[in-house]
Nucleic acid binder design. Structure first.
Lengths: 248, 248
DNA sequence: GTTCGTACGTTCGAAATCGAACAAATACTT
DNA sequence: AAGTATTTGTTCGATTTCGAACGTACGAAC
């Protein structure tokens, strides 16, 4: 456990910031600041989920691994949310990998302490269930998007989602990687990214992506981005829908 | 409210059947038997969710409606589950339509009574959260499946999922309709269904689908069917993973 | 028995995407 | 400065899927 007290006012995680003081008090003694280094697997599919991570900075992808080895992104979590959703549902296993895509930091709480806090604090439970529902909305809309929308729209959507969580207009990101997330082949992303770049919406050089025209990107995405964003805002408040964009 | 008492032993819904008597007692006075006629919209996207429906027979699709009017299935519920998942999360709105695909019956409970029962019964809440997690698993795996797997495998998967909930080897189902569920065009389904039919796995005549070789279909599907089924079984017990197949 | 609506089979050209490959450019290493 | 690994741009043919169309079969209604 952490030796020193964490001040709620200094917490950058949207869920924790939304708690009343009494509910925060249930969690705080058990929270431990941890690093989320790039590419770390926070929890693995099939394995146990032994802690919840409230993300403070960075971005983590939730991934389904298919039989052929392909990993497809089903959702993204950032400073608006948490990892270890299975524990919110009272389970201790996950169908998905969680892998750090943009390095950052988190506050970690072990499964037992987390369950105890959930049991004692109805407000905490209610808040985290709303987050779970928002995440379900993200996965639901994303699934339909995968089935029907062309690569260019989906790429714009993914970039906006990443931008919301990156905390900056520029962040490291390769075509190869985005192709895997979207479940498409790499040249497909290169072509789509080329279109967005020629339209002046983004720039990229060797694994560094820069969002140069966010309103333009929002016009280039399918409605799925806006649908998910509105759902996050409705359930968790505007701050949690787009932590980076509204702060910066 | 219903005038007469419903015996738990006669209930065909997997969730209700799994409840201890004390938890059942919280719900029973408020349950009302209702019909689920074909094509009925149980609740609509954006609209309020004013009741939970524990399905007894039949099958209901949970659908995302896209801007272009296309409706893509994100999940299916049958006698193993319920509709109105938003209420389990403490919310009262839904991102999705729920539409009856195979007619049946359900036990309905209004939102207020349902919330009260959830508040009073931790066991009920725990059970329904496990169902919510299983449903999230279905949506998650389905989204990845949409992104990567060819139509034929996805059709086999969908037929197996329907078979599990239909309670019979034969059920009404058109190509047109399956195409919409899978988010693909109709000839794509006709071709895929033709392959499955020539392989002797299914038969169909004018909107009547018959599963003739279930093990064969299970070999023709992608792993996504098995993954989801195992997750349902793990979280809810074997009965809920395949209510029809294990009963018949 | 005829008519009509729906479901299905099939075709066709167009478009999107795939999968593999290779060249060019950039960063890192030595 | 040279060598190496990685990232990106690009090509190309193959495959899948799309979207529209048309003909046929089945079943219900008159």
């Amino acid at each position: 456990m952490s030796q020193s007290t964490i001040q709620q006012s200094s917490v950058r995680n949207g869920l924790l910031a939304a708690l009343a003081l009494a509910d925060w008090a249930h969690l705080e003694p058990h929270l431990e600041a941890v690093e989320l280094p790039f590419d770390q697997t926070v929890h693995a599919a099939g394995g146990p989920v032994d802690a919840v991570f409230f993300i403070e900075t960075g971005m983590v992808s939730v991934l389904v691994t298919l039989e052929d080895g392909a990993q497809v992104e089903s959702g993204i979590a950032g400073p608006e949310g948490l990892l270890g959703l299975a524990l919110v549902f009272g389970d201790s296993h996950s169908l998905t990998d969680a892998r750090v895509q943009l390095e950052g930091t988190a506050l970690r709480i072990g499964a037992a302490a987390f369950q105890a806090a959930m049991d004692r604090s109805p407000a905490l439970r209610a808040l985290l269930l709303r987050y779970a529902l928002a995440f379900l909305g993200q996965v639901t809309q994303g699934g339909a998007c995968n089935a029907r929308h062309p690569i260019e729209n989906r790429l714009a959507r993914w970039l906006l989602t990443a931008h919301d969580r990156a905390g900056a207009d520029e962040f490291p990101m390769t075509h190869e990687f985005m192709a895997m997330m979207l479940g498409v082949n790499r040249p497909g992303v290169s072509i789509a990214a080329g279109l967005l770049s020629r339209a002046g919406l983004i720039r990229y050089v060797r694994g560094r992506m820069t969002i140069t025209d966010r309103p333009g990107l929002e016009a280039a995405t399918c409605e799925c981005y806006h649908t998910v964003r509105h759902e996050y805002a409705r359930l968790l408040g505007p701050r949690s829908a787009a932590p980076a964009a509204s702060a910066g």
